[in-house]
Design a binder for these strands. Structure first.
Lengths: 189, 189
DNA sequence: TGTACATCAGTGAACGCGCGTTCACTGATGTAC
DNA sequence: TGTACATCAGTGAACGCGCGTTCACTGATGTAC
């Protein structure tokens, strides 16, 4: 064994936060099942054993990391409705899974997860709808749910598809479709 | 060891088909990584060893099962645009993952899969778009991509969310939104 | 401020487990004559 | 049609591997006095 010094409380708190941040990125990149506890601790340059000083289980980390992902999501960043659509339905967002919207990154994974993770995801969905209410006040609640579903679906399909042109088409066409709808709803207001 | 009789070629061919069908269902229910080769063979009442008489690897089965799932998908069933939307965006479809649309069931899983599986999924997306072209000829290509994304997104979110009311709202609102759009585009034709 | 000692963040080996895949084996099926 | 033998579908144990979690241990940090 080598150099297993006790760290200060500040350092320990930083370790915990870093673990959540790393997990949040890795889970979005590779999916919840495909990231091991060792992967997360390894991303911090630490070994696996220390993990359980900070978290009760991998599942507890998953719920926390999922929640953390929402607070830095693309949907959370403000701006105009146009800018939001341009950013969300962009090739940059598509190619940056680890830093992108967790709604799209984890949508099928979450359906198979325990309640803590699903709760966290559900809160993220409500949060996303609330954000849309701010940037697109002209839409009804129902239209906003259709919009969120359209954005998440387009991004997820653009990532799944194995053809660059088709992938770009899904992003572009969803962008155009929803941009037009938002413009029309503004004009009616 | 017990009763390991050789089966006739017909029986063997049936075994292979059953394995693909069972895998297609299980993969959609639980995700590609969460179904083991033993699970698939077990669903046929067989043991794991015989698997490799039929398939080169689990990955080969995944690609085949994914392709098979498309040929029996809800999108593939014909009918009017209205009926298609009602069926796709229904609570029944939401709760029957194993028998439902693979586009929605596997959308985030597939992005992390090898090329064979992604190819199979991409073909399914093109197929879905072609089906939409038949039932909704009034839409442009771009609108059809936005529609497919909206359907897949709404179904996937309805499955992920941990709140029955919110889940039902996503299905209902997407159904209403797209039904209206289809009606409007028909009237213009 | 200085000293003695308890605490605990992180180490790295070990645990039991299930995975994908391989393998020697069984004995009915299929074929050559 | 009958016989001898090769084939091969399926068995079930075994392989190496990585997983989540536990544990005895180290030694600086934090605290009581």
């Amino acid at each position: 064994m080598e150099a297993a010094l006790r760290r200060s409380r500040e350092e320990a708190a930083r370790t915990r936060k870093s673990a959540v941040r790393a997990a949040s990125r890795l889970f979005r990149e590779r999916g919840l099942q495909e990231v091991s506890v060792s992967d997360v601790m390894g991303a911090l340059g630490l070994t696996v054993g220390g993990f359980y000083r900070h978290f009760e289980s991998k599942e507890a980390l998953a719920a926390e990391a999922c929640a953390a992902a929402f607070s830095e999501s693309a949907l959370a960043r403000g701006g105009s409705a146009d800018a939001m659509l341009r950013g969300y339905l962009s090739e940059g967002h598509r190619d940056a899974r680890g830093a992108g919207c967790p709604l799209a990154a984890l949508v099928t994974d979450v359906a198979r997860q325990p309640a803590a993770v699903r709760d966290s995801y559900t809160a993220g969905v409500r949060d996303g709808l609330a954000r849309l209410a701010k940037v697109a006040p002209g839409l009804s609640d129902g239209e906003r749910r259709a919009l969120l579903a359209g954005m998440v679906g387009a991004l997820a399909i653009a990532r799944a598809v194995n053809d660059e042109e088709l992938s770009a088409a899904f992003l572009r066409d969803a962008r155009r479709f929803w941009t037009r709808l938002l413009k029309d709803s503004d004009e009616q207001t």
